[in-house]
């Protein structure tokens, strides 16, 4: 059974915590297409949270096209073509990069420097893979 992790006392609303976890799990393939998600009641009872909170997260995921509500079956992962999926993955990474750049800016480190660091990391990773072979 899929288990989500939440931290109720965090400043981030629980529905948002659930939303981003499930979004990630759909994008990284942990939940495959057509896979059925645990019911609202099940998740609420596993995590000891209000069912309304789970419904809110599921509703938002449905609205954004990640999940589809099937009559009598509950929520399943929406089947989408690879192109759309790819765009969504890129959008998510884009968010993360923006956050990274904002953090760098706070520290007084330029975007160019960050780009350079990313390039370095890619080279290191390549070298490691080559070394292993």
């Amino acid at each position: 059974m899929e288990q989500f992790i939440i931290s109720p006392s965090s400043g981030i609303p629980i529905y948002k915590q659930l939303y981003s976890q499930i979004e990630r799990m759909v994008l990284n393939g942990y939940f495959s297409i057509d896979q059925r998600l645990p019911s609202v009641r099940q998740v609420a009872s596993d995590l000891d949270i209000n069912p309304m909170t789970v419904s809110k997260a599921y509703g938002l995921l449905e609205e954004r096209g990640y999940l589809t509500r099937l009559r009598g079956k509950g929520m399943v992962v929406t089947a989408r073509d690879n192109e759309v999926l790819q765009l969504e993955k890129l959008a998510m990474l884009d968010e993360m990069i923006k956050e990274l750049l904002a953090q760098a800016k706070h520290m007084g480190i330029s975007g160019d420097k960050v780009a350079q660091m990313i390039k370095h990391n890619i080279t290191d990773e390549l070298n490691e893979t080559v070394g292993k072979e």
Binding site: P8, S9, I14, R41, A44, S45, D48, I49, N50, P51, M52, T53
Partner: peptide
Amino acid sequence: KEILTLVSDENITVIFSTHITSDLERIAN
């Protein structure tokens, strides 16, 4: 858990006073 079972029936209204905010964060809307 008992309260959550009760409120899965959406017609039930609950008001509770508490100092334990983490309980509230779990069950209150």
